[in-house]
């Protein structure tokens, strides 16, 4: 049996712990993006304690409430083109998905939060503590919360096709003009449909608009 030195084992554990932590941070970043998107409907209050994040509905014009920050929010806003609602330092908590009990070494506490730049949201009133700690308790069960989203009409369709909800920031391709019913040049379809309606015995199915088509 091959023997490993204590240093090698320690390094491996640290490496694995770092990897797990990175995965957790990515997971949290996704949760953060989700919260950011919901900024027009809710305020995410990040507390330094173990109190879960609370979602407070607000109306119309959100306001930025900053009690204290480790960085200048204004400068950061200019840099990324969007307001990041969370502090830049995250200290993982117990129970946040990282089994710190199994780690023989201290876990790094300075990890950058990756917020997709494509996300544009209104300013969010976020209270940022002096030594901010992201409370992930409320975000730890994101998958469950997605499943528990309000039941929608014809939701069985999603089940049939195993459709995972497409996030708003994933709809860039869907928003292209080529993906619209008329394509890049709607007039092409317009003329084609006129000829089809003129020379074929079927009518309807192209929209409820009427039309002075004069084709009986």
């Amino acid at each position: 049996m091959k023997h490993y030195s204590l240093l090698t084992l320690l390094s491996s554990v640290v490496f694995l712990a770092s990897f797990s932590l990175q995965a957790e941070v990515v997971h949290m970043a996704e949760s953060v993006s989700r919260v950011v998107y919901q900024g027009d409907k809710a305020v995410a209050t990040v507390e330094p304690s173990v109190v879960p994040v609370t979602i407070k509905p607000f109306h119309n014009k959100p306001k930025v409430v900053i009690t204290e920050s480790v960085v200048k929010l204004e400068a950061k806003t200019k840099q990324v083109g969007t307001v990041q609602p969370l502090p830049l330092k995250i200290t993982p908590r117990l129970g946040a998905g990282v089994d710190t009990a199994a780690l023989p070494v201290a876990v790094p506490v300075l990890v950058p939060v990756l917020v997709p730049l494509s996300v544009t949201s209104p300013l969010m009133p976020t209270t940022i503590p002096v030594n901010p700690i992201l409370n992930t308790r409320a975000l730890a069960h994101q998958e469950e919360s997605e499943e528990l989203e309000e039941p929608s009409l014809f939701s069985a369709i999603s089940d049939w096709f195993s459709v995972k909800p497409v996030k708003p920031w994933q709809k860039g391709t869907l928003a292209k003009k080529a993906m619209k019913p008329g394509g890049e040049v709607p007039e092409f379809d317009f003329f084609s449909e006129k000829v089809f309606a003129y020379k074929q015995g079927s009518i309807g199915g192209n929209g409820v608009g009427g039309g002075g088509c004069g084709c009986n």
Binding site: K180, P181, G182, G183, P186, E187, D189, F190, E193, K194, V195, A197, Y198, N206, G207, V208, G209, G210, G211, G212, C213, G214, C215
Partner: peptide, 13 residues
């Protein structure tokens, strides 16, 4: 005659 306008098509697209 040729149908002239199919509003729903263009409006919808």
């Amino acid at each position: 005659k040729l149908p002239l306008t199919i509003l729903g098509l263009v409006a919808g697209s």
